[in-house]
Simulated assay, not measured.
Amino acid sequence: MKAETIDDAPAANVVHLVADHDDLGAAPESVPFGQRITAGAALVLWALLAAAAAGSAVLLTGLWAGDSPGWWFNLIFTVLPALFLFGCALALLESRRSARRERRLSARWEATRANARSTVATIVDRDVRLTEHGSVSSFIVAVRTDDGREVRARWYRSSGSNADRALLQPQVPALGSEVRIWAVPEASVDDPHVVVALDPSVAPRREG
């Protein structure tokens, strides 16, 4: 039975690609989340937003005080920059919130990784997101164990372990591929689950 269409995956569930089955014998050392804006970069962006807001306030004061085609014209050019700045602020707040959450999850995985156990599962559905150049920016897989348990997880191109490589859509693990779900026993939906799959873009290592 095919899984329902997948739109997203829990924040704690991440796909980790490996080159060989031998790499599936131990729990991954870290959860390969995507890169986030650093605290220093966030401070710079907040400063730029504040400067943009101050500059917009000055320009809008002149707009409302001077001659214009009408109040509707002033309103349009007041609402548009306000919405833009508000949207930028929300995006920055969400990025920082996600970064803090992922740091907590990474610390939790580091503390409990020694107790993690693997479960064999099969990919039953996937959703691939592409960049404007046609390479894969991220993908979500739904995997199902023999006892019917289903887990959804996301692969991040921007993860440090992926080095921003250009993975093509045919190189995404195929439906029916076998994977391992690494998690601590009795893990809740809020605990990290690392779905380890073979990387179709890398040829298996061969002993000489």
Rank of each mutant, 00 (worst) to 15 (best):
A51Q: 00
A27H: 06
A107Q: 12
A3T: 13
D199M: 05
E132A: 12
L90G: 02
A11L: 15
W64R: 10
S135L: 01
T131Q: 09
L59S: 14
T38R: 09
G148R: 02
L105M: 08
A111K: 00
A197Q: 01
E186R: 12
G34V: 09
G25I: 14
A51K: 00
S30V: 15
K2E: 13
D147Y: 04
V79K: 06
V196L: 00
P185F: 03
R117L: 11
R157S: 10
G208N: 12
D7L: 13
K2G: 07
L167A: 03
V136Y: 04
L24C: 15
R149E: 10
E29G: 14
R205W: 03
A3G: 12
S161Y: 02
V184R: 00
E132W: 05
R157T: 07
L75I: 08
R154D: 04
G160K: 07
A142V: 13
A41I: 10
L17I: 09
E150A: 08
V194P: 02
D164V: 06
V184F: 01
A142T: 15
A121Y: 05
A203W: 07
D22K: 15
V58R: 14
D20I: 09
R129P: 00
A107S: 12
V141F: 08
P200K: 13
L85H: 07
R103M: 12
A19G: 11
E207C: 09
P32I: 05
S188V: 01
M1T: 11
L17E: 11
S161E: 05
